[in-house]
Amino acid sequence: MRKIISKVVLIGSIGVGKTSLVRRFVHSKFDEEYLSTIGVKVDKFTVQSDDSEVEMLIWDLAGEIFLNNMFDKYLSGASGIIGVYDVTRPRTQHQLIEVMDKLKLSKDYSNQIILGNKIDLIENEVDQLELQKTFSYDYLTSARTGQHVKDAFYHIAKKITTSDV
């Protein structure tokens, strides 16, 4: 089996639930204090994708770094980008889409997915349908319930393995 190691960066505004999504998936070795101190926390986990084992080093970027446009250095060498916004705060979606569109222009950052997080907070079915029509996303996730979290990480792993062939 082929084993590949890659860097995946999580970006998004403050309080959209990036760290909660990672926490849902991995048991962190580093204290979350790193996020407020140096703006990044690195976690690692491995997923199977087709005939490959993908070891992902997840760089969880602090929202302040994202909002202040200081993430260039942190994105460097990334094989995948996961953009996260909060479905209850439309502004966080606009901020994210703007950045992701710019990043798409670079072939280095073509492997990206967008997650609309905190979907569990939209209880009304009508609102959910409306949201699905108007918002851009690859997955609507919930770090609280775990909805689509695993799918999202497997999806980015698949993108990485496909682009690496």
Partner: peptide
Amino acid sequence: DADMIAGMFTAIRSFMET
């Protein structure tokens, strides 16, 4: 865990540079 140390160490360097 050398992978994690390498990642965090590079993150700290990126922080210093930024």
